[in-house]
Design a protein around this nucleic acid. Structure first.
Lengths: 226, 226
DNA sequence: CCTTGTGGGATTGTTCAACAATTCGGTAGG
DNA sequence: CCTACCGAATTGTTGAACAATCCCACAAGG
């Protein structure tokens, strides 16, 4: 798909952006398109065409690039341009290194007992599974794990988890995803939540570690094949 | 101290920056000045004067601001300008929320057994204490805690820890620091490291939690007084 | 045939100057 | 004393220009 098609809808609807937020608006649009997989990892984001498509100046677009580069959504190579980030095997290992710290720690030491969001995420994952919608299942699964870290009640930790999950989406988009990858994990999440709510926090954390180690192996394997 | 004095040294030395890194260079200069406490929290960073002082254009300076805003080193208020961040009591609580997860988790689950950097940091802290240098003691203390998180071997976690410690420096700069604040913690760090190296990881983690909770209380108290 | 410059063209990095939008301080009027 | 409004100052955004760098095709030489 060409860039013109990806951003065609922007020109249709009135894209009047208020003063003092054009840069972050552009970043948001790009981030959304990358997360949705419309912009495939490795795609070069040339400045001039994108300026026309987004209707912003080069300076403003570059401000958006600076934001996305810090979030690891794009890779900036000096004098060569910015590209949609293409995670390496090392990136995958780093992602799970972070997750293996954040998620078990949240299960062990979280104070917030409000698990409504977690139940809701599991329910949505189950419905998506019975519907056969892989994308929705993946999304609900990510919401569950983001919700686990959110138990910690820390904006900063949730922010880092959100960034890691965004990189996860890039990983999925950069290789042919096994449609059944997420399916078995749905019930496993439910089991972890059950233990957690029963007050067996260390058991829940141990299950989570096992979960993450298995997912990492599986993902690295798939990455090596691709 | 005026801005002109703070940035006077830049004009003296040749400040020729290579192509394709002027923006990050400006960010680095500002970050350094803020961390060192030369730019007091709350200071307004007006664009035009700073452009002259740094010798960069407004666009480039704004790129630097975007970076620093994400790192929470400056606060950007739309249409009003950017200010050196002034941490609130809630910010302090958030800082320690993150630290209480990252540091004990690193002690519990770290794989890397290389503790050389931690010993070095403690040694530097002891020398600074006997020298009576509060600033060096604080710096060495921060190096120790950054080193603890570095045990996790994760670039992302170390990065977040570095950001949190930078915010800590802002906290210290935004209030009259008790010269003896860091003194008792030096030996405590040594004790934690001892337990860790003896393989008693959960004891080390427990000591760390205690340490952090006490430091947070003390800091919040001092913040309330100021 | 393969390497090794070596141009020119395209793209990125940076600056500058202008204009639009917003805030802030002061001031006239009630 | 309070309110509304005006204008100066500052920020947000744009477009054009120039400098620096990379690329790619192509020619010269081994």
């Amino acid at each position: 798909m060409t860039l013109d098609q990806i951003f065609a809808d922007l020109r249709r609807q009135g894209t009047t952006v208020r003063h003092a937020e054009t840069g972050s608006w552009a970043a948001e649009v790009l981030r959304e398109r990358i997360s949705a997989g419309q912009l495939v990892p490795g795609t070069k984001l040339s400045e001039e065409p994108l300026c026309d498509l987004l209707g912003v100046s080069r300076n403003t677009l570059r401000e958006a690039f600076a934001t996305l580069a810090i979030e690891h959504m794009v890779a900036r190579i000096p004098n060569r341009g910015v590209f949609v980030a293409r995670p390496t095997a090392d990136d995958i290992r780093e992602i799970y290194r972070v997750r293996r710290f954040l998620e078990p720690a949240a299960l062990l030491w979280s104070t917030s007992p409000t698990t409504d969001a977690l139940h809701a995420a599991i329910e949505r994952a189950r419905q998506a599974r019975s519907r056969g919608s892989v994308a929705d299942m993946a999304g609900a699964n990510q919401d569950f794990h983001a919700g686990v870290v959110a138990l910690a009640g820390s904006e900063g930790l949730s922010r880092q988890m959100a960034q890691v999950l965004a990189e996860m989406r890039l990983v999925f988009h950069s290789m042919v995803a096994d449609p059944l990858f997420h399916a078995p994990y749905v019930d496993e999440n439910a089991g972890i939540l059950e233990r957690f709510e029963a007050g067996e926090h260390s058991e829940a954390a141990a299950l989570m570690v096992e979960y993450l180690e298995r997912a990492e192996r599986q993902l690295l394997e798939a990455h090596a094949r691709a």
